[in-house]
Design a protein around this nucleic acid. Sequence first.
DNA 1: TGTAGACCTGGCAAC
DNA 2: TCTAACAGGTCTACT
Length: 293
Amino acid sequence: MEINKIKCGKFSFNVPNFDLKLTMFSGQTSQPPWKHKNDYYQELIFIEDKPCLIKVRQKNNHLEVKYETDTKVSPQDIKKTIKYIFDLEFNLDKFYFNFTQNDSIFSRIVEKYNGLRLFLAHNKYECIISSITSANNSISKWTRSILRIKEKLGRKYVFPSSEEMYYFPDPETVLENKDKLKYCGVGYRYKYIVETTKILYENLSIDEVNKMEYDEAFETLLELPGVGPKVADCILLYGFRRYEAFPVDIWITRAIKDLFGVSKDIREFGQSKFGKYAGYAQLYLYQYIRHKK
DNA sequence: TGTAGACCTGGCAAC
DNA sequence: TCTAACAGGTCTACT
């Protein structure tokens, strides 16, 4: 699909306490890392319902941004979206202060992974399907599946720089192209994706879930096929920016056991210990245990 | 109520 | 080059 009335531009802005690469490749996200090309990370996102190709790279404390989009989209809109996706408004210093007080282990974790932030989803439906696909799956296989879904079912956009990008399909397209979905390497999760998509298309509004209190949203998401506690918390954290969510996978289980000797009711433990910082705590705990020697 | 086993895929180790 | 064990959450059937 060609885009009319396109404009290209670039700008940069200050991003203290942020590590783009660490954030994008944290492994704890609801979306694969953006495509790396010519020293920039690029992704197609929708801003004000208009397709927008965004390219970002970090130079010290500055984030350099290039964009190609509809003339109606302003650089301010793009900046606001980027700030949301990388959670740049979150007060990381305050979190560090709470997380590390009188704690040498956490102080070392924070020092090592300084600037790591949540990599938030720009498309909530994609986030839900992506999180279901990630369950019982390795990062590399999961990444490949999501890229295949985009390429086989998504809409292709061609930008002035000749860049071809695919956008994640909407629920209607997924339901109309179920056969193609079978060849995206999602395995037995295929039926979960189709059934969940049907529910989201016919009965449950994602916007309504977004308005719910955390507990109600968690219980509602558990009703979706293929969504258990871990996936529900992933959706709430990365898709709906609910900082109190504490997704517990095998690595977080290991980290909590390793650091606190707790091996039961890990989610409750994490939420009680870290409160409104639970989501950020699990992000750092994951890095700690994955790289522990 | 709690738990064992099935579900898929593919990179990797052993042969 | 081929084969087998393995990792990773959710669901279902069974106790």
